[in-house]
């Protein structure tokens, strides 16, 4: 037994444990500890300056009647659905087009990939100019279409639309590349066999492309939902969360509550809600995926 515990494999086991430790310790200190503390803090009243005061679940009990919070839920839902449903469709279509053997394929692929490469802050700043009252979108598009300019970023009805349009522009290229990778992993023999059996374009798409892309869809939906639920940079830079809270996403609200209004407790309560939302989305997705396979 003595000899066994000194066998190469066993001692290598200790090394293996040690190799994982730098990462694990970082996660413990900067992920697990903070998230547990978010739950803990959500039960207190705390403004950084005076000592914490226990309030139990009061921070949560107030949320259902809190108009600012409810509006941020709505703003986030509108943003996520408004952005990603079009993004999924457009990026899949572009990927299929670029998967065909056409000229300029490499150039187009590179072009479409520029926006996802760019900094979100830089993109937001550029689009703020596009959406200016006398900017390109009004003079070239809205004026001819509607006959009048639109107050993109200062009108409650249009500000969410503006942010969604910008995000579609920014995000589509990334998901296009992911779909393209998925499409390229489908064997061309599958298509040839089906074509010999007389399948047309739509049938090929419906019965080969879509089913074979299932793992890609799973990845795309989960990543986009997780990202979308956390978005706040364009909302902040382009519209400052306004007008009238129409673009204050949950993540932006958490930042405001914590670091501007110094309401750490209620902010932590909203952070818990965000955590639960993302967790729920992940779990549902995981379940669906397991049920499908």
């Amino acid at each position: 037994m003595q000899a066994r515990s000194r066998s190469p494999l066993r001692s290598a086991g200790w090394w293996g444990f040690a190799f994982a430790m730098p990462a694990i310790l970082l996660f413990l200190a900067f992920s697990l500890w903070p998230i547990l503390n978010t739950f803990y803090l959500s039960l207190f009243k705390y403004d950084l300056l005076t000592p914490k005061e226990w309030v139990g679940v009061r921070n949560f009990a107030r949320l259902p009647a809190d108009q600012v919070f409810l509006r941020s839920l709505k703003a986030t839902a509108v943003y996520v659905l408004g952005t990603y449903i079009p993004v999924w469709g457009i990026s899949l279509a572009l990927a299929m087009a670029l998967n065909a053997k056409i000229k300029l394929r490499g150039l187009l692929r590179t072009l479409y990939f520029i926006p996802p490469m760019m900094s979100m802050v830089v993109v937001s700043v550029i689009w703020k100019l596009m959406f200016h009252h006398d900017g390109l979108l009004n003079t070239m598009l809205m004026q001819p279409l509607l006959g009048h300019p639109v107050d993109w970023l200062t009108d409650e009805r249009w500000a969410p639309v503006a942010i969604i349009l910008m995000s579609i522009w920014k995000e589509t290229g990334f998901y296009m590349v992911v779909f393209l990778a998925g499409l390229q992993s489908i064997s061309s023999q599958l298509y040839e066999a089906a074509r010999i059996d007389g399948a047309g374009g739509w049938a090929l798409f419906r019965h080969i492309t879509l089913p074979m892309l299932k793992p890609t869809f799973a990845f795309v939906t989960i990543i986009s939902l997780i990202q979308g639920l956390q978005a706040f940079i364009p909302q902040w830079v382009m519209a400052d969360g306004g007008p009238n809270g129409a673009t204050t996403s949950i993540a932006l609200l958490i930042y405001r509550m914590a670091f501007v209004w110094l309401k750490m407790g209620p902010a932590a309560a909203v952070a818990v809600i965000l955590f639960v939302l993302v967790g729920a989305v992940t779990l549902i997705q995981w379940r669906l995926q397991r049920a499908a396979s």
């Binding site: 503390n37 978010t38 803990y40 956390q230 930042y255 750490m264 902010a267």
Partner: peptide, 12 residues
């Protein structure tokens, strides 16, 4: 799956 915004307060 833990959003940064969810842990940013204690992290701070």
């Amino acid at each position: 799956m833990v959003p940064i915004a969810s842990m940013v307060i204690p992290l701070f």
